[in-house]
Design a protein around this nucleic acid. Structure first.
Lengths: 267, 267
DNA sequence: GGTTTCAAATTGTGATCACAATTATTATGA
DNA sequence: TCATAATAATTGTGATCACAATTTGAAACC
């Protein structure tokens, strides 16, 4: 604790589920401040579904887990709460939001409205380099699907979509979508372990093809179809009473908190 | 007949434009904590356009102006920044975001996509009491238009729209829209003073009529038309080089150095 | 055994101080 | 007069302490 530790050289990796590795899901902020480090780490954990819905988030505990001070963690949690990635209860306690059918519907409707529009705005700006990265993400996703690494699978899926959206430099729309993805990330991860992720037709391939041909309509349809695939797969059928108990294993943070370690149930 | 609304020239320039009054724009959080009080106050100021684009936001100065401590203000600013209502620059300095044509396009596109959907989700849940409130907001808006109170005008417009959207209990979508409205609030306020707010046909009346008849399609069209009216009014034509200097009077607090042009007294 | 009671631990909120980095202001040079 | 250097003021970030409100765990009770 000598002088300024602006340099992200040292990374005090700690215990528990998520390590402090500065694994930024995307090329966002430089994360030069501690609170940005904490934010990026938590954000990545949410998107890849490392954290189960309902899990309580304790300020001090999470700060120690991530190896940062309390103040940076406070800021990170506040930011994620404002982005609706974390839920604040009346008790002023924070947790990973629980998923409901209504919430899922809204999230998917928002995706269905915003993502095709975002893709269409971007299609003209995707050069060969960007297209190569998009292909790489898709390959990574297929590989992770084969190897059964759900977190890598989700990270690659996120990277694929946002590599497209970000090409259009639609910052406003992209920010909205980032918030949305963080919200259904934890839920998706849980669900991927339950239902077989049988991919009918690879909509990503169609999307890549549409980008090559600069076919705006086709790209729009591909993105829509990709989202609908996910909805069909884990939509309504998941929210039965039988499965509901499975999905909300980590109870609402209103009570308890001792089950902070429930990050298992891998696929 | 055109320039009904007050120009923002009288904006009190000094930071102390907004008092601590807990003027909540809507019926949101209980705001029992200090940081919620600060958040609600700033949020309301943004939505009604009390703060000009480009204005720098100083943590300590704003805290003193609002009569709260530094910690609550820090949390409030962090939250609004996460909601993209405030812009954080590389200097880690915060300001009211400047408006660009591209940003405006994206905001309006997001509105165009989300708001009709939100209204359609809500139409079935609007009972007579809610409809009465909606009418009251519209009346308030017309009255404010006549009297030339731009801030009240904008507050009523906000209340009108979100009274509809919130009836559908679409929390996810509504949150997204709140972020969007906070983003174009400051810009709208500035623009209202420049262009004459000549309302061609009152789309609000059409919307109310559609709600009465439970005419979903008609409501969707009314909301779309209302948004398009605003776009046509202050869209492309505003972003000419001539007007641009007017619009970005308070310069960005970013790299260019100069802090908010409103640091002193008169502009 | 099951419920109630009560102390210890933990929670988020907020204040206060410290510090490095900018920004603003004044002083000093040609 | 104008540009440069030095100084003062202000900024956001972070640590640390304090405090009230819950939550937890165990003891005490019926």
């Amino acid at each position: 604790m000598s002088d300024r530790l602006n340099t992200p050289s040292e990374r005090s990796v700690k215990n528990s589920g998520l390590t402090v590795r500065v694994s930024r899901t995307d090329d966002q902020a430089p994360a030069e401040t501690m609170q940005d480090r904490a934010y990026q780490t938590l954000r990545h954990a949410l998107i890849v579904g490392k954290l189960p819905p309902g899990k309580g988030i304790s300020l001090r505990a999470m700060a120690e887990d991530l190896g940062v001070g309390v103040m940076p963690m406070r800021a990170a949690i506040a930011r994620l709460s404002a982005e609706n990635a974390l839920a604040v209860h009346d008790n002023r306690r924070v947790s990973i939001p629980e998923m409901t059918m209504d919430r899922f519907d809204q999230l998917m409707q928002a995706r269905l409205l915003l993502e095709p529009a975002c893709a269409m705005r971007a299609i003209g700006a995707i050069d060969t380099a960007a297209l190569a990265r998009i292909r790489a993400h898709d390959d990574q996703m297929n590989a992770s699907y084969q190897s059964g690494d759900a977190e890598l699978y989700m990270a690659a899926n996120y990277a694929f979509h946002f590599e497209i959206y970000r090409a259009g430099q639609s910052e406003v729309l992209t920010r909205l979508l980032e918030s949305i993805w963080m919200q259904f990330g934890p839920f998706m991860r849980k669900v991927y372990g339950l239902v077989g992720t049988a991919r009918l037709t690879d909509k990503h391939e169609i999307a890549i093809n549409a980008i090559e041909r600069r076919d705006v309509t086709r790209l729009k349809l591909a993105i829509e179809a990709d989202i609908l695939d996910g909805m069909d797969l884990l939509g309504k059928s998941i929210f039965t009473d039988a499965n509901d108990s499975l999905l909300s294993k980590g109870r609402s943070a209103g009570r308890s908190g001792r089950k902070s370690g429930t990050s298992g149930d891998a696929a």
